[in-house]
């Protein structure tokens, strides 16, 4: 059994164990409402996490995802308050804005050879500020809470049967992305660019263009998530999504996509998102202090990565031992 399969089994086991523990501690956990709300929460993070998985596969990082969520929801709110345009016009505009931001990130990273992390941290600051500036204000200049009444827009927050639309979109997007990553040439290019950019360039892959595309996809995913978030909340605030980066990073990392690039897939990310959503829901259902949440999420990231490295060391040690034993045996046979 491969390492990632074992990892997924362990994670799934943990998911079930925590689920059972939670349902014993608080019977309301197992109610269909709670489970579906949890899935909805997971999907909102998960859509962003899909884009982020691709970024991590290229060994990059995107800190601007939270700010992209903020600014795209503000764009939607502006369209709703100041224009009569229908939702099917401004939603594509918002999604395009997400892509455009990703393009800018990618452009700075590839053409100026700047560190990914600091570029996206800078754009994060710029976008968070812009979101506050373009927010709809009342006469006194305070940010106004716009209630979204557009039925088409609100329908994104509805359910089909018991399942929220966002969950369905999340699953469809995950399947499509997984297919794209494993079965198309562009997907292979992304893995190659992450594993070894120089080798990828030498074998004729346009690494710069691949990276820009990945950052655009990440921006798109964040924008998509923001629309579902706004539809669910029936309003939008300029603080939306800011600070969500860590949840997303935790989801992707626990799902088995390392920071070193070249490895990872979407299935792991799905399990990781579910895991983080379950933990957050559990903290809520157990009535613990909400301040514990950041401690737990920060701790999970570090513990996961530390465990990964330990396992890797262990595996390497075992492999070298096996190789040495084999060499010894062949020597004996030769003698």
């Amino acid at each position: 059994m491969s390492v990632s399969a074992i990892r997924r089994l362990i994670l799934t086991g943990l998911l079930i164990a925590i689920g059972i523990a939670l349902s014993i501690a608080n019977p309301t956990f197992l109610k269909l409402d709670n489970l579906m709300t949890m899935l909805q929460e997971a999907s909102l993070t998960g859509i962003v996490a899909i884009g982020f998985t691709l970024i991590l596969i290229t060994a990059g990082i995107d800190m601007s995802i939270g700010a992209v969520i903020a600014i795209t929801s503000m764009i939607c709110v502006n369209f709703i308050s100041y224009t009569q345009l229908p939702a099917y016009i401004y939603i594509p505009v918002a999604l395009a804005a997400g892509c455009a931001i990703g393009w800018v990130n990618g452009f700075f990273i590839t053409h100026f050879k700047l560190p990914e992390f600091i570029v996206t941290l800078a754009t994060r600051g710029i976008l968070a500020g812009l979101a506050l500036i373009i927010a709809v204000k009342d006469e006194q200049g305070f940010v106004k809470n716009v209630f979204i009444e557009d039925p088409v827009f609100l329908s994104f927050g509805e359910t089909v049967g018991p399942v929220y639309i966002v969950t369905i979109v999340f699953i469809l997007l995950a399947i499509a992305t997984q297919f794209f990553m494993k079965r198309t040439r562009a997907g292979t290019n992304i893995y190659a660019s992450g594993a070894n950019p120089t080798a990828a360039r030498l074998s004729g892959i346009n690494v710069d263009r691949t990276l820009i595309g990945v950052y655009m996809f990440s921006g798109f995913c964040a924008a998509l998530s923001s629309i579902f978030l706004a539809a669910r909340m029936m309003t939008a605030m300029p603080e939306f999504g800011i600070g969500n980066e860590l949840d997303v990073i935790a989801s992707v990392v626990i799902g088995g996509t390392p920071f070193t690039g070249g490895i990872g897939d979407i299935w792991g990310t799905i399990i990781g998102t579910l895991f983080i959503a379950l933990i957050k829901n559990g903290i809520l259902k157990l009535g613990l202090s909400p301040y514990i949440q950041p401690i737990v999420i920060g701790g999970i990231i570090i513990v996961t990565v530390v465990a990964d490295v330990w396992y890797k060391h262990h595996a390497e040690k075992k492999a070298t031992q096996a190789a040495r034993r084999k060499a010894m045996e062949s020597k004996e046979v030769g003698a």
């Binding site: 990082i61 514990i292 950041p294 999420i297 990565v305 530390v306």
Partner: peptide, 27 residues
């Protein structure tokens, strides 16, 4: 130690630290 011995990128470690230190401060 986490950055060097476990080969985790520094910004991830310190960002996780930022988050949990904030949580501890709030608690």
């Amino acid at each position: 130690v986490v950055t060097t011995k476990f080969l985790v990128p520094a910004f991830i470690v310190t960002m996780a630290a930022k988050t949990y230190l904030f949580g501890v401060a709030m608690l």
